[in-house]
């Protein structure tokens, strides 16, 4: 089906050129992989007057690890993440997340940054970034801006992005102590699906935990009450039970065509328990390989 909406297209050669045209346009959209944007234009959900393709900006296409921080550029695709050596070595849970995003042909185009800019509740990148205390890096004509991932998400499909700004990438500081993680995503089957519940757990060797939920909340959240309960404690079955009781206070699931609220709550508890166990096992060196589904 053809796109009815008409727009202009520009592929800037430098970030400053991109920022200049963005500042001049009324309703520009940034195009990276296009897997969300082109679909939204087809459906008339997005009606940009100008599409700015940032795939020509080499500085945004990088995945690099410097100063104990991972930078994922706005052009980096999920396939890039899966194939990245740095990620396999230092952030294997990102590999685990990326492997559950859509399918190869989408992952070859879709980007983490595009995912958090679309900011639909079922996105997979949100819980990842907030668990890592990531920073969203923006460039605008007035200069650069850094926003903690937790403040980036404002509401479904609404972010802290301001007019004229481009997200250049996200930075994920490497936790200071030994750690391991687990990503658990609920789909309706093994193949590609949008999450009905997703969660990421990082278990750190200092006895602390970072736990984030997506899809069962309008915007991804850190499960602060659960973290507080678990931090520094010996993880016992009764403590896990207490933590599971808190889940309903941390999430706000809805019933929709993909799952009922009841099932989402039920699964959030099951997934939390399994994810926690898997993360701790991985931390202790006896866990299952990253990429193994826990459900």
């Amino acid at each position: 089906m053809p796109i009815i909406h008409k727009f202009d297209y520009l592929k800037p050669k430098s970030l400053s050129e991109a920022l200049t045209v963005l500042a001049q346009s009324k309703n520009a959209a940034i195009l990276a992989g296009g897997t969300d944007l082109v679909d939204m234009i087809k459906e008339n959900v997005a009606q940009p007057d100008l599409v700015v393709d940032i795939k020509g900006l080499d500085e945004l296409n990088q995945i690099k690890f410097e100063n104990d921080t991972l930078f994922i550029g706005a052009g980096a695709t999920f396939s890039d993440l899966i194939e990245s050596k740095i990620i396999k070595e230092k952030y294997p849970v990102i590999f685990e997340v990326a492997k559950t995003v859509a399918s190869v042909g989408i992952r070859n185009r879709a980007t983490v940054v595009g995912n958090i800019c679309s900011a639909v509740p079922c996105m997979d990148s949100g819980p990842l970034l907030i668990a890592y205390d990531a920073t969203v890096q923006l460039a605008g004509q007035k200069g650069e801006r850094k926003i903690p991932a937790a403040e980036w998400f404002i509401a479904p499909r609404k972010t802290a992005l301001q007019k004229g700004e481009i997200v250049t990438g996200v930075s994920l500081p490497y936790p200071k102590v030994k750690h391991a993680g687990c990503w658990v995503k609920l789909g309706r089957y093994t193949g590609e699906d949008l999450a009905q519940v997703n969660l990421l757990i990082l278990a750190l060797s200092d006895g602390t935990f970072r736990i984030s939920f997506g899809a069962v909340v309008p915007i991804p959240v850190r499960a602060k009450k659960i973290e507080k309960l678990l931090n520094g404690q010996t993880i016992t079955p009764s403590l896990i039970e207490k933590a599971k009781q808190l889940i309903e206070e941390e999430i706000k699931p809805i019933t929709d065509v993909r799952a009922t609220k009841e099932y989402r709550i039920h699964m959030a508890k099951v997934m939390f328990e399994r994810g926690l166990d898997a993360a701790i096992r991985r931390l202790n060196g006896n866990g299952q390989a990253y990429g193994t589904s826990m459900i």
Binding site: K11, G34, V104
Partner: peptide, 12 residues
């Protein structure tokens, strides 16, 4: 690399 050509603008 494989892509979904229904989600790619020709101009890209």
């Amino acid at each position: 690399k494989t892509v979904r050509s229904c989600l790619v603008l020709a101009i890209e």
